[in-house]
Simulated scan of single mutants.
Amino acid sequence: MALFKAWCAGTKDKSKKKTFRTYSEKDGGRAAVLTQLGEAVRTHYDQADRIADDVARLGYDGASEILRALLPQSKRARSGDLGEILASELVEEDMGFRIPVRRMRFKDGREVAMRGDDFIGVGYDPDEKLWLLKGESKSRANLGNVTIAEAREALNRYGGRCTPDSLLFIANRLLESADKDDIELGRTIRDEVGLKALRANRIDHMLFTVSGNAPAAKLQKNLEEAGDDRNQHVVSLHIEDHQAFIAEVYEEAMNLGSK
């Protein structure tokens, strides 16, 4: 089941290279997808087969304790992580890109934010040549101009290209895979770091926001002022009870059920 389609009502306004999307929860939408949201969060922190193995070895209570040790507990860390997680889910559901590495699985501390670009999507053009999506996510109870400007500044950093450390992190994880297609993609991404061959119009930008307010006018203005040398995407996900929603989703993520 497509997460956002079942969960939210949305709008899409596209003008040339710039696209503005808004999402808000349908009546009953959260209840319909809460289990799916919990599963999505879990898989960003750990592999599903490892969790299943924990359950088989330790039971549901023991496996839940492992999840609690992996998942952040502070409001700030959860908010930031969930923004990146939801952005990644939307990118794969509706943007035509793949997020090849779940970054949260490699955190060196559950309350610590990952460095580098928040998310990078990978795709190909009709000629099977590499195409990238550089993304920044912001999660705030009240999203304002300063935070929006910070995200745009991060997108424009390094000439609008994905940062080399972020690309190499993804490439190296893919090269560790047993899947030959992942290995080939990892090699291609490492080559891109060395050659910087992608033109600006082959690196899309995406600003994803999840917030308790709905700052559509501010986000639209930011999109209008963004460069027109590449595809630009801005997404606003409005969750009125922002903090309560985050707590609810993480509680569901740690709930493996019982026998």
Rank of each mutant, 00 (worst) to 15 (best):
A9D: 01
D46Q: 04
E25G: 01
L237P: 01
E136S: 11
L175I: 14
N255E: 05
T188L: 07
A200S: 12
L71G: 13
V112D: 15
D94W: 11
A217H: 13
D181T: 02
E251H: 06
L58T: 06
K180I: 05
G80K: 00
E252Q: 08
V101M: 09
G83T: 12
G123A: 03
I239C: 02
K218D: 00
F208E: 01
A178I: 10
G257Q: 03
L132Q: 14
K221H: 11
L256V: 03
E111N: 11
A178T: 14
I170K: 14
K221M: 15
Y250C: 00
A2T: 02
C8E: 00
V193H: 12
E248D: 10
D117H: 10
E224F: 15
R230I: 03
L195Y: 07
N172C: 07
A154R: 14
S236L: 06
T209I: 08
A56K: 13
A56W: 12
S211C: 08
A32H: 06
G194V: 00
A216G: 03
K259C: 02
T209Q: 07
A214G: 01
R199E: 06
V41Q: 13
A31K: 14
D49I: 10
S177M: 04
E176A: 08
A77H: 11
A200H: 09
V55R: 11
V146Y: 05
R202G: 14
V55Y: 12
L237S: 03
L256I: 00
S74V: 03
L143F: 12
A113L: 10
E240H: 00
N156Y: 15
F20P: 02
R50P: 07
Q232S: 10
E153C: 00
K129R: 15
A9I: 01
E225H: 09
I120Q: 07
R230T: 08
L86G: 08
K259M: 01
H205P: 00
S258T: 07
V210G: 02
L223A: 15
I120S: 11
Q220G: 01
G257Y: 01
D81S: 14
R98K: 07
L185N: 09
I66E: 11
L3P: 06
T163Q: 09
L58S: 14
L67F: 09
A32V: 04
C8T: 02
G212A: 05
E111A: 07
S79V: 02
R152E: 06
R152A: 03
L58Q: 05
A77K: 09
R21T: 04
D117I: 13
M1L: 09
A48I: 14
E240P: 00
E176R: 02
K180H: 04
D81M: 09
A77Q: 10
P215C: 03
N142S: 08
G194D: 12
D108V: 01
V193A: 13
E252T: 03
R42E: 15
H242P: 00
D179C: 12
L37P: 01
I189S: 13
D27G: 01
E224L: 13
V33H: 02
I246D: 07
L70K: 09
Q36D: 11
K180V: 14
L130G: 12
Q243S: 05
A197H: 05
A247W: 04
Y124M: 04
E136Y: 10
A151S: 02
G144H: 06
A113P: 05
A69V: 02
A226W: 07
A52H: 08
